[in-house]
Simulated assay, not measured.
Amino acid sequence: MRANKMTKIYNEIVKFGNGFGSLMDAIPNPDTVLRKSGSTYAGYRDLLYDAHLWSCIQSRKSGTLSTQYELVGANSQFITEVFNKLDIQQLAEDILDSLLYGFQPIEIYWKNEGDFTIPYKAVSKPQELFYIDSEGKLRYKPNGQAKGVKLPEMKFLDIRNKPSHSAPYGTALLSKCYWPIKFKNGGIRFWVNFMERYGMPLLIGKYSRGASKAESERLAEELAGMTEDSVIVTPNDIEISMEEPHRYSSVRLYSEMIKLSNSEVSKAILSQTLTTEVSSGSKAAAETHYKIRNEIIRSDMRLVESAINTLIGYIVKLNFGHTDGTQFRYITEQENLHTKLDRDLKIQRFGGITFSSDYWIKQYGYSREDLD
C-alpha cells in the first residue's frame, strides 16, 4: 500500500503544456509584449535599428566574443581541426541572439570528409518557423502546414534563454526594450515636428497704416521665402524683425523622455547604465557596475559553452559512437592569470631563471613594497 502511494512522487503532475491553450500540439508563446502589441519577431528585429540598443547589444556580446577559448578532453585535437573549418565566432554570436529573442534555433549542416562526418556550417533560423510542442520539444513549422515537423536528432541546436514552465520560449530581452524604444521614437517624431514649428526664429513684418491687403499678403509670401533664401527686398517704410521662440521647457521634456528610454534599454540589456551613459560618478559606483558586467558576461559564456558542447557531443557521437569529456570553455582573465603564474613559477623553479622585481610588478600588479 505504501509502495503504491510512493509511486505518485515519480509521476509528473503538472506537465509542460498545462496552463496554455494549445492548438495542434503547439504551445502558444506567452510573451506578453508580442501578444498585446500584435507584433511579431520581425517587430523585435526592427528594434535593432535603434542606435542605443545596438550599442548596448554590441557591448554585451563583445565581452564574450573577445574572450579566447580552449578545447580540453580526449578528442580535443580532432575537435580543434573541425572547428578550424567552422566559423565558431559567428556561431557564438548567433547563440547569444537567444538572449534577445528568448530562443534561437541553429541548423547544423553536415558533410562526409574521409571517414568522418563533420559540420561545415551552422546557420541561425528565424523564430517564426518554429514552435514548442507539449513535450517542450522544438518543432519546425513549414508554410501551409498546420502541424509541425519533428526535428531530426543532432540536426539543430535549440538554445533558449532562461526557459521555464511559464516561459517555454525563453526570456526575450527585446521584450523589455519594446515599449521604451517605441515611446522614444514617438518622442523624437514629436520633437522634430516641434523644431520645424518653433525652432526657426519668428519673422515679423510691420507695415505702415493704409497698406492694402494685397501688399500684406505679398509681404507674408516674401517672409516665407526668406526662411530659405535669407534675402528680401522691401520699401524702406516696412520694418522686419526676428523674435526667438522661448520654449526651453518643452525641449527639456522631450530630451528627458529620450534619456529615460535609453536608460531603460541599458538596464534591460546590460543590467546597468554606467557604461553607456557615464557622465560622472564615484569610483565605488564604477567598480560595482564593472562587477555586474563581469557577472553578466560570465553568464553569457556559460550559455555559449553549453550550446557548443552540445555540438561537440554530436560530433563525437557521430564519429566515435560515444560522448566523451571533450569540452569547449572560455578562458577568463582570472584563469589566464593563474595559468601564467603557474608557468612562471615552474620556469623559475626548474629552469634556473630568476625574474626581476620589475617583471613581477609589470605582469601581476605588485608594488615595490610588496616585493621588498
Rank of each mutant, 00 (worst) to 15 (best):
P30Y: 14
R302N: 12
P235M: 07
F183A: 08
E113K: 10
Q68V: 06
Y140A: 11
K121E: 12
T288M: 11
S266H: 13
P180H: 02
L151V: 13
E305Q: 03
I95C: 05
F130S: 08
R218D: 13
A42R: 11
N75G: 03
P105G: 00
S280Y: 04
Y140P: 02
A26H: 11
T171P: 09
P126I: 13
A74I: 15
L96D: 01
R302V: 10
L138T: 04
V82S: 02
E228L: 14
Y44A: 10
P142V: 08
K150D: 11
N185Y: 09
I88M: 13
W191F: 07
E93C: 04
E135N: 13
K8L: 14
E217L: 01
L260R: 11
T7F: 12
N18E: 15
V192G: 00
K182W: 06
E222Y: 01
K155C: 05
L99N: 05
K111M: 15
P28M: 14
N309L: 02
L202R: 10
V33H: 01
S271W: 07
N18R: 11
G199S: 08
D97G: 00
G38N: 12
G351M: 07
E305N: 07
V278C: 10
L311D: 02
R2G: 11
F16K: 12
L311W: 11
N294A: 07
D50F: 14
D133S: 08
M1I: 00
F83K: 08
S282A: 07
D358M: 03
F320M: 04
Y290V: 13
G205C: 09
A122G: 04
K15Y: 00
T323D: 09
S37P: 00
P163W: 10
K162W: 08
K147G: 03
